[in-house]
Design a binder for these strands. Structure first.
Lengths: 354, 354
DNA sequence: TTGTAGGCGTTATCAC
DNA sequence: GTGATAACGCCTACAA
């Protein structure tokens, strides 16, 4: 990088702590004390209020650079992720994280580092050169990760991921509860023969949702039937294939729980091809709440939402707390499970009288 | 905010310019000169190389805070947007912007400020307190905006938006060309009777895509038929309604250009209900390339992609250039139009022999 | 209760 | 060619 050689162009409009001090007729120490509520040094109440008022009137806000330099704190969080920014829900995670950080006066820097499996070998220097006070390590979907050693040196929170070290705060969707929520919704409507179009990947979402499905059946006294669970690719085509298979069973399931909304999209096609209707002949429930799909389908899709916004918020809250008081290591369950709420639309109804 | 009262905890592992100077056996001034290729002060080649080597070995990287303070430059860009982070394509914009900024050594801070029409009245102080060197003002979809006075004080680039001041760099999708691309693709396959399921909103995308549709017809010597253009809500339901209408015409269009992929999703349903098949009886082409929809539909949807990633990249490149050399105001067309590439999938074919 | 001074790490000016 | 030094704006130990 080549320098311009020019001296810094000072912005005369910018008000500094000196200006406030001058305007309030006190020393800049007093201003600092007053504005920061410093514990030791007490400032007369009257003085403090005058200082505050002056600062407000002048539109003073402390320089982040100067404060960072002095305090060795940047008040900036890094969100390091694989392709999180391209995942359909990335926006929600970023939004939740960003809003929370902003509300607490922190900045959030996004670092997209490509495939996360390259992480160990990759050069993270650029990330750390940005001098952040903490790291949120987010993955595109719920999974188990190995945290690079370099990253452990900073306060760290995992989002949508868990690792071996159970002392690292981590937040993931409660897949089990979500699977249970979906299944219970069907049971509540009177369904007893419920197919599950699941996926084939060996990831927590697969195990968890299946476990939730089983738990709901058990709680309702419905026998688990292996034939009602069909695993396929977690795409629309997989959902189509799985649903076709399920609809060909005797007796035919009156409802299908789909691993995600894309699979549900395929299931809709299978139902239509079988000349059946949703939800009269078959109820469909999805997972993920991808709104484009869920609201675009006809009838609109009842589904279970992944709490991305909430996870973003949680990660930032906990990371800032961790930074501000590392000693306060609250004993907490690991990982933190964020509930997945039901989003009711039109694709679930009661089965026709048998 | 309450202070801890503790003195700053210095990170002993962090190497500063002094360490490099000591290790290289020169003064820290020389290190700065050598590392920054300062014009006036020349450093002996041998010295410079030694300094560089030492810096590399020690893993030195200058403190951003200190540099910001000294240079009055934060090397940080703000991306101020309405609900961009929740829009389905937000990820692509952010990704393009972030990768580009990162590659040039800049940081990108995202500021989500809710509904942008409130912008004038909104308190942007928090944004500017973050001390950024420039602003990317991004909207959720292509439109005309009024830029708040405060924002004009900083280098500014508009993304997916245009404003009255034609000297403000601005990048938007080339809607006209995109509409033309879609229509031409259908014409190339031999279609002559092409319906257009458009939307009702009074936005540039509506006018532009229609204009492109007309231009393509004209270029192919096909008479524009008003009845072939049906405006509806830009949702799946609107696409359904529009397609139903179009499919009832005599003669029936052999192809339908849908304003966006969601409308195309609805059009698929209308085609299926009419017991027609895609693309044998009717070809469908969308717009936006929302992958979840386009790849989930059966058959997969041929569509025109919005260049979000590229717009993010363009905005950052141009903003940094503007900051680094404001005098270099290149005379350029306004706004910059980013082409929308065709994404071929399976929903377009040739019409059956008449 | 308030003021003074030193330093956070860097770059630019100006001597040597 | 090289080095000492003064800022950038802020916070805080310490003196008054």
């Amino acid at each position: 990088v080549t320098r311009t050689g020019k001296p810094p162009v000072l912005d005369p409009s910018r008000v500094s702590i000196r200006d406030v001090a001058a305007a309030a007729g006190v020393s800049l120490t007093t201003v600092s004390h007053a504005l920061n509520d410093v514990e030791g040094a007490r400032v007369a109440l009257k003085t403090r209020e005058r200082v505050r008022k002056t600062a407000r009137e002048l539109g003073y806000s402390p320089s982040r650079s100067a404060r960072s330099l002095r305090l060795q704190r940047t008040h900036t969080l890094a969100m390091v992720s694989d392709v999180v920014a391209t995942s359909p829900h990335a926006g929600e995670i970023i939004l939740g994280a960003q809003e929370t950080a902003f509300a607490r006066g922190w900045a959030l820097a996004i670092f997209n580092i490509g495939q996360i499996r390259d992480l160990e070998s990759r050069d993270l220097d650029p990330v750390f050169q940005h001098e952040v006070d903490g790291v949120i390590y987010a993955t595109m979907y719920h999974r188990h990760v190995k945290v690079p050693a370099r990253m452990r040196k900073l306060p760290l929170v995992l989002l949508d991921a868990r690792c071996d070290n159970t002392r690292t705060p981590s937040v993931v969707p409660d897949e089990v509860l979500g699977g249970r929520t979906a299944t219970e919704e069907l049971i509540k409507r009177g369904h007893r023969c419920i197919g599950f179009a699941t996926n084939r990947d060996d990831i927590p979402a697969t195990w968890g949702r299946l476990e939730g499905y089983k738990a709901a059946l058990k709680a309702a006294g419905i026998r688990f039937d292996r034939k009602l669970v069909v695993a396929q690719e977690s795409e629309a085509s997989g959902g189509y294939a799985a649903a076709r298979r399920l609809l060909s069973l005797q007796p035919r399931p009156t409802a299908i729980f789909c691993f995600n909304d894309r699979m549900a999209m395929g299931a809709y096609r299978a139902v239509a091809e079988a000349r059946l209707s949703i939800p009269d002949d078959v109820s469909i429930i999805g997972f993920d709440n991808q709104e484009i799909i869920a609201e675009g389908l006809h009838p609109s899709l009842t589904t279970v939402a992944l709490p991305h916004f909430e996870m973003g918020r949680w990660a930032v809250e906990n990371l800032i707390d961790l930074i501000e008081d590392p000693s306060r290591v609250r004993p907490t369950v690991y990982p933190t499970l964020m509930p997945c709420p039901l989003v009711s639309r039109e694709s679930v109804g009661s089965p026709r009288a048998a």
